[in-house]
């Protein structure tokens, strides 16, 4: 009896210890990532200090590094992606949740999930050979003819550049925005909708007054998750952004993002250049950490408020 009891409790203790250790391992992984990057970027931080964030030159030959062009490139492409993907993604989510019959809903949801499953490098390939030539020959000349008075649409149409980057990012973040807003809107109780309709609203007024306000913080969370994805997206953007460290008002101009400069220069970099690239990574890490934490808190708050709702 005694023997059996000991054997069993060893099994219990082993599994408990094992799962506890792995859970703590996951927790420390985050700290490990941050610590590794801080250590590896030390030489660069020691040399440039905070001026690294505001420096406009990126000169690997003379060892002078500033990350501002990459911060600019990342922000411009991500904002452009949000401007394009938010209305479309939300429109799709509202259509799926409030309008579509269930057969269409299943099919289109599935297609949107497939869109999310396509690897980044395949989007990049498509971007180089299909999107960029189309931009160069058709879209960019048209834009500069129609809106050329804006600094945004001036300069030679090159195809590759921030516009191409923003467009590719928009396609890539659309599924995440749609999936999360669809989930939080699905969690809005039907009584809300019925009450609005009973007051004589049209369908759009019902959506506007009863559904969207209820799901608002979750939708914003979904948009921020999409933003987080856009900020850190690497391969597709590296392939279409043109890879040049410059700050230009024109969307047609080639640029570089935080992620794309790391992808394109890291393997050839040594000593200070390498350390500077890791510091670029640290900036990217910090920005996406903040965006993701805010996004998660927003999505969590909705999931917690709505009983029985889907956690995203």
């Amino acid at each position: 009896m005694q023997k059996v009891k000991t054997r069993l409790s060893i099994g219990d203790r082993t599994l408990k210890l094992l799962v506890l250790v792995t859970a703590i391992l996951v927790l420390t992984l985050m700290i490990f990532i941050a610590w590794q990057m801080i250590v590896a970027s030390k030489p660069s931080f020691a040399k440039f200090g905070w001026s690294f964030v505001t420096g406009k030159t990126w000169d690997s030959v003379n060892g002078n590094f500033g990350a501002l062009p990459f911060i600019y490139g990342t922000l411009v492409t991500s904002l452009l992606a949000l401007i394009l993907a938010v209305p479309t993604g939300l429109g799709l989510a509202i259509f799926l949740n409030e309008m579509a019959p269930s057969s269409i809903k299943t099919t289109v949801s599935f297609l949107a999930e497939l869109l999310a499953a396509i690897p980044s490098v395949v989007y990049g390939l498509w971007g180089i050979f299909v999107l960029a030539p189309w931009l160069q020959n058709t879209a960019e000349p048209w834009l500069s003819r129609m809106f050329g008075f804006l600094p945004l649409f001036q300069g030679p149409p090159l195809g590759v550049g921030m516009l191409a980057g923003g467009l590719i990012l928009a396609v890539m973040i659309l599924p995440i925005i749609t999936a999360i807003s669809r989930d939080v809107m699905g969690a809005v109780p039907n009584t809300q909708r019925e009450a609005a309709l009973a007051l004589g609203t049209t369908r759009w007024e019902m959506i506007k007054t009863a559904v969207i306000p209820y799901a608002k913080s979750g939708i914003i969370g979904g948009i921020m998750l999409g933003l987080g994805r856009a900020l850190g997206e690497t391969m597709a953007i590296t392939m279409v952004i043109g890879n040049r460290a410059q700050i230009s008002a024109s969307l047609f101009a080639p640029a570089n993002s935080l992620a794309s400069v790391i992808a394109s220069e890291f393997t050839e970099a040594t000593s200070l250049h390498l350390s500077a690239l890791v510091e670029v990574g640290l900036i990217l890490f910090s920005i996406s950490l903040i965006v993701n934490i805010l996004a998660r808190l927003l999505v969590w708050s909705v999931a917690r408020n709505v009983t029985g709702g889907h956690a995203a």
Binding site: I24, V26, L29, L231
Partner: peptide
């Protein structure tokens, strides 16, 4: 602890994959 692990997991999901590349390179 469980909520901390859950939160870390969610945030890890959003960390750019290239960052993971850098960290594995450095370590």
């Amino acid at each position: 602890l469980a909520n901390a692990v859950r939160f870390t997991t969610d945030v890890l999901m959003g960390i750019p994959s290239i960052i993971v590349g850098i960290v594995v390179y450095a370590s």
